[in-house]
Design a protein around this nucleic acid. Structure first.
Length: 459
RNA sequence: GGCUAGGUGGCAGAGUGGUUAUGCAGCGGCCUGCAAAGCCGCGGACAUCGGUUCGAUUCCGUUCCUAGCCUCCA
């Protein structure tokens, strides 16, 4: 395979070559578990799940996605609700796994939690101090940004310019405004761990460096996350890890997904436009949300609006419609490979819109052909593509029946269809159409075919 | 103000130095008792102003606009 990925560090698309032939290590910045994940949080999870699926076709992949379960936002949530911190993080970790699962996100190989890696963080911080890259001040340990020449390279920032434009008050114990916290002291009521610098808790950035090192090694192939993490989070990770590892780079490829907006604005609590995946999956099929997230290229901004989901649902209707009613034997289904054009699109920096277009091209070919063997073969290929994309995982009949639950029972629909068939045979079209109208009012659309009628939900 | 990424047809959204994106919507046709689904066909686009070029939506520069980041926000 020739996989090309856009690397933020180099600022362009480059050929992907793993450090060790045949093996790939990938780390994705996961959620801070103080609330349910919103649709914007879901984007990196889905996008890099797709990358993981693609990589697994050709490599032995080790994929880690962390949970940040120590953070001031969590502390704030605990104070607000009166719940123990552990309950909050446990609740939202479980919800995250479920919600992402509903979007077809496969579990990563490793899901490390920050609180289970405090010792590794302390060790890394000590190394940084010992080698002159960090210093202790008033119970804090700070990374000395000036000690790392390449600081700012990932985010293309000039440190001096940033300092000039700094608009946040600089803590007095910092040597330089750009220095960032590796460790900070905790008051008795806050979570804390004993360390050489007193009881405290880690800064945000150190956890990813420490956990990636432990589970994936000092240098990893791919590090991914949301675009807003480029600075400062990933810039700081780059600095920490390189300095802790004698200058060896943290990651060879840095991937960042674009932001998701709601109706052209940022999601924010104050605007009341935060869409929680946890709520969405209650009424919307996960595949619809997944396809919507994959309908734009991952590096492009994605504007979420009312039409986004409707459009995704219709696309799935078309794909499911193509494979509906085609009986594929198990062996053909299992052995089928995705369309080469689809793989080629994904290997070009995950061009999912192109990949979807290739699926539609296949669907059209399938709808057109009269040859039964070819239909089966094309359907198997299309479904194999769906497996790779994490789509078309439902049974086609079940897909078209979904939204009807609670309105009319399947039995009732079948009875009405039967009655309509009789009417049609007797050429009593007024009655037949009346039944069709009745079903239509209940959200059911009838499709008459050469070998009988079938139905689908139309809402 | 600085940095980064963008501005494509009614909507969403790829891509390309000269030739079809794709999906939805619209229009015409086939099929159908009529529909639906499907198939065939049609229309309609590359923010602005310059430059390079035989030729630019595609390369370079200007202007305008949008989004994100600028110390803990996916």
């Amino acid at each position: 395979m020739a996989l090309y990925l856009h690397d933020t560090m180099r600022g362009r698309k480059v050929l992907f070559e793993p450090l060790v032939p045949g093996k790939v290590t990938m780390y994705l910045c996961g959620p801070t578990v103080y609330n349910y994940a919103h649709i914007g949080n879901a984007r990196p999870a889905v996008v890099f799940d797709l990358l993981a699926r693609l990589l697994r076709r050709s490599y032995a992949l080790t994929f880690a996605r962390n949970f940040t379960d120590v953070d001031d936002k969590i502390n704030a949530a605990a104070a607000e609700t009166g719940k123990p911190i552990g309950d909050i993080t446990e609740q939202y970790i479980r919800a995250y796994v479920d919600d992402m699962g509903a979007l077809g996100v496969q579990p990563p190989d490793i899901e490390p939690r920050a609180t289970e890696h405090i010792a590794e963080m302390v060790t890394m911080i000590s190394t940084l101090i010992d080698n002159g890259f960090a210093y202790e001040a008033e119970g804090h340990v700070l990374f000395d940004v000036a000690s790392f020449d390449d600081y700012g390279k990932l985010s293309r920032r000039d440190l001096r310019e940033m300092l000039a434009g700094a608009r946040v008050e600089v803590a007095p114990y910092k040597r330089a405004p750009g220095d960032f916290v590796l460790w900070k002291p905790s008051t008795p009521e806050l979570p804390g761990w004993d360390s050489p610098w007193g009881r405290g808790r880690p800064g945000w950035h150190i956890e990813c460096s420490a956990m990636a090192e432990k589970h994936l090694g000092p240098t990893i192939d791919i590090h991914a996350g949301g675009q807003d993490l480029v600075f400062p989070h990933h810039e700081n990770e780059v600095a920490q890890s390189a300095c802790a590892h004698g200058g060896e780079p943290f990651a060879h490829y840095w991937l960042h997904n674009g932001f998701l907006g709601i109706d052209s604005t940022k999601m924010s609590k104050s605007l009341g436009n935060v869409l929680l995946v946890h709520d969405m999956v209650k009424t919307i099929p996960g595949e619809v949300i997944r396809l919507a997230l994959l309908s734009a290229h991952y590096r492009q901004p994605l504007d979420w609006s009312d039409g986004t989901l409707e459009s995704a649902r219709r696309m799935l209707d078309r794909l499911y419609g193509a494979v509906r009613g085609i009986d594929i034997d198990t062996r053909l289904r299992r052995e089928a490979e995705p369309h080469a054009a689809l793989i080629a699109a994904l290997e070009d920096d995950l061009n999912t819109p192109k990949a979807l277009a290739e699926m539609f091209a296949l669907a059209r070919k399938l709808n057109k052909t009269r040859d039964d063997a070819e239909r089966k073969s094309l359907a198997a290929t299309l479904l194999a593509g769906g497996d790779l994309m994490g789509l078309l995982q439902d049974d086609a009949e079940a897909w078209f029946a979904h939204a009807t639950e609670g309105e009319l029972s399947t039995q009732a629909i079948d009875d009405l269809l039967k009655a309509r068939e009789e009417a049609r045979v007797n050429r009593d079209f007024a009655r037949a159409d009346a039944i069709r109208d009745q079903l239509s009012a209940a959200g059911i659309t009838i499709e008459d075919g050469a070998d009988g009628s079938r139905w689908r939900r139309s809402v």
